[in-house]
Design a protein around this nucleic acid. Structure first.
Lengths: 252, 252
DNA sequence: AAGCTGCCATATGTCGGACATTTCGGCAAT
DNA sequence: ATTGCCGAAATGTCCGACATATGGCAGCTT
């Protein structure tokens, strides 16, 4: 039986499809998505399945179900952008939501230097292995940047690199927050055709960050993370506004 | 018809009930919760309703549904503790999860000083109103601490106070993270009978934090937030381990 | 004419039963 | 002892029906 299972064609994912439509702007906050029966017809599945998927969108705060009236898209501020599923959708469809992307990047500018500093204090050998593997993956997929597949791989390793640093804090909350990295890192890739930054420079900054963590030098890790993020912000056309943490405190 | 609607008795919330059982330790990671039909019988509702509620637990990462086998409780690390619903349940039933509580408090020790500093730079008049109202609510519900109702009110204002500071950063991610405050603040209350800290001292520290933000003094706000959190950590029997951000950077 | 009341259409919420699919465990043949 | 098949048990999906909540319109009252 070399033939694979003849029907891996599972049922269509209504949540996924609606998420794409909403994130792409087809439906905006305040709009109503099609009613259940319409979705049943459109996707050729039963109401139970449709309702199950709509429940997922409710649980992440994207839509609000009004009994007897319909399902309304909620305001962006009400979305659970910390939910892994939402960040996953943001990475794929969020081009038309530049505001959220900017806020996420601002958040990263805020916290990543601090996370790097904490990681430098608590990282174990196992954490360093994860960080190093991700780093090497970034390096190996840095050449012919014209190949989309390779650029995607590079981004995956980039995400893994930063996520590994978050995990090295050995704190559940920080670790789960690493999901927020994915959208902005992928956004960087999708715009990298116009990116003016030198990939080699970026890799070198990542190396310095990694080495600072390995050497358990929290302050160097803090500064190195600032440098990495500043590069990212610049590539996305955002001047690092005020990563003035060090500045304000050094006044002391 | 002075009689109210005779049946506001809505259907039992299976998700809520199961969450309480899981958070209380009746079911632990790896265990299987009762099968759908058993829950139908136990709560006297239909399978559709049961499945809808189970879907909610799946969406927040608490359980995992294995087709044809059952619903298994996932490891704590896989729970979406950043989801508002999960933090809500944590505030109510999390007594038997001291590990998660400690990690949340460690996270707060990490970020709240920085959040306070950022708020001091960006807070608008409207933000200050929210902070001040919460502060006054804390003060007015500080007397006879023996009254449980008043202690609950005090906690609510305490949460509102810290959440208002998070919102004053004017960043979506920070604002949504304020949900994480609730569990540890409520935990403090539930243990306050053995708390040795003076409520007046705590209130005074909060006042200094508020005034630093109002006066736009980021560094003072940073230090004041550290003082507030140190008090909280001490009351919960945790020495502030290493809020050494300032320390490490001041070495510079 | 303005405002209120009550009815009706619409869409979601719940119910009950049925069948399909997946998983696991046991039994039997190799 | 291993492999393969079969069947029990639980979840996934489907179908049809009724209950409930919401919004708007018609008609009546004032």
């Amino acid at each position: 039986m070399t033939a694979r299972t003849p029907k891996p064609a599972r049922r269509p994912n209504v949540a996924e499809a609606l998420a794409e439509a909403i994130f792409s702007g087809d439906y905006q906050p305040g709009d109503f998505v099609p009613k259940e029966l319409a979705l049943c017809e459109q996707f050729a599945i039963n109401r139970s399945a449709v309702r199950s998927d709509l429940r997922q969108l409710v649980d992440v705060g994207i839509i609000e179900r009004i009994s007897g009236h319909g399902s309304k898209v909620r305001e962006y501020a009400e979305w659970n952008i910390l939910d892994p599923l939402v960040t996953e959708w943001l990475t794929r469809y969020a081009a038309p939501n530049p505001k959220i992307q900017r806020e996420i990047l601002a958040f990263r500018l805020d916290v990543e230097p601090y996370v790097a500093m904490t990681a430098a204090k608590r990282a174990t050998a196992r954490d360093l292995v994860a960080i190093e593997e991700a780093f090497e993956g970034m390096g190996q997929n840095l050449h012919n940047a014209s190949c989309p597949e390779e650029r995607r791989l590079h981004s995956d390793y980039d995400v893994a690199f930063h996520a590994a640093i978050f995990k090295a804090t050995h704190n559940i909350v920080w670790s789960q927050l690493s999901h927020i990295l994915r959208p902005s890192i992928y956004l960087l890739v999708s715009m990298s055709n116009v990116s003016a930054t030198d990939p080699e420079d970026s890799l070198e900054r990542h190396r310095q960050l990694m080495e600072s963590i390995r050497a358990r030098r929290p302050r160097d890790a803090f500064l190195a993370a600032q440098a990495v993020l500043a590069g990212t912000a610049q590539a996305l056309g955002l001047d690092a506004p005020e990563s003035s943490l060090g500045h304000d405190l050094d006044i002391a």
